[in-house]
Structure formats: C-alpha cells, structure tokens
Simulated assay, not measured.
Amino acid sequence: MGILLTTGVYLIVYWYRFWTAIGLRSVCFPFMINCQMVLLGCNVVCHVGV
C-alpha cells in the first residue's frame, strides 16, 4: 500500500514539474508543498508500521 501511495504522489509531483517545464500554466506553489507533505506523511506511516 505504501509503494502505491508513494508512486501516486511522485506521479503528481513530476507531472506538475513537466507541465511547468514545457511552459504551460502553473498551479499555485502550495500545491507542490501539499504533495510533498502527503509523501512525507505516507513514508512516516509506512516506516512506523514496519
């Protein structure tokens, strides 16, 4: 489950980076911070679970 959540969050983060790198309209900066906080929370929960 942790691997799937981490993969999903990375997919969103790198999709956003690609989107802005090719010059398309960017979403607000807090979007990236929220995605990275979800990833951190997922990692912490998975490590505690192990």
Rank of each mutant, 00 (worst) to 15 (best):
R25I: 06
G41A: 00
V13E: 05
S26K: 10
T6D: 12
M1D: 12
V45E: 04
R25W: 08
V13P: 03
P30C: 02
Y14Q: 13
V50S: 08
S26E: 11
C46E: 13
Q36S: 05
V45Q: 04
G49F: 10
V48K: 08
G23K: 13
M37A: 11
V48F: 11
W19F: 10
R25T: 08
Q36R: 04
C35N: 08
V48W: 11
I3E: 12
F29R: 07
Q36P: 00
C35Y: 03
T7H: 04
T20C: 07
Y14L: 15
I3V: 10
V9W: 06
C28K: 09
G23N: 12
L4C: 09
I12R: 12
C42S: 14
T20P: 00
V45C: 09
S26R: 10
M1H: 12
N43M: 12
N34Y: 11
V13M: 05
T7G: 06
N43H: 08
L4K: 14
N34E: 07
L40S: 05
L39G: 01
V9T: 13
V48E: 05
G49E: 09
H47T: 08
G2N: 03
V50W: 10
H47W: 11
M37D: 08
F18T: 13
Y16R: 15
M32F: 05
V9H: 07
L4E: 14
V27P: 01
I3H: 06
Y16Q: 15
L40W: 04
G49I: 08
W15I: 14
R17F: 15
L11E: 01
V44K: 02
R25K: 10
C46Q: 11
L40K: 00
T20V: 15
V27C: 05
V38N: 00
L39Y: 01
P30S: 03
F31R: 00
L4S: 14
L4W: 07
H47P: 03
I22N: 02
T20D: 07
G23A: 13
V44C: 01
P30N: 03
C42Q: 09
L40Y: 01
V9Y: 14
C28H: 10
L40E: 03
T7I: 06
G41Y: 02
Y16A: 14
F18P: 00
I33H: 04
S26L: 02
V13K: 00
L40G: 00
I33N: 02
V45F: 12
A21G: 02
C35E: 05
V45I: 15
T6Q: 12
G8E: 01
G8C: 06
T6E: 13
V48A: 10
M37N: 08
P30M: 04
G8Y: 03
L4I: 15
M37Q: 09
L24W: 13
T7A: 14
V38E: 05
T20F: 07
I3P: 01
W15C: 11
M32D: 03
L4D: 13
I22L: 11
L40Q: 02
Q36D: 05
M1P: 07
F31A: 06
M32H: 01
F29V: 07
N43K: 09
G2A: 10
V9G: 03
V50Y: 10
V44F: 02
G49S: 12
C35V: 05
I22Q: 07
G8L: 11
R25P: 04
T6V: 15
T20H: 06
Q36Y: 08
G8T: 03
R25V: 07
G23S: 13
W15K: 09
N43W: 09
C35D: 04
Y14K: 09
S26V: 04
H47K: 07
M37G: 01
G41L: 01
H47A: 11
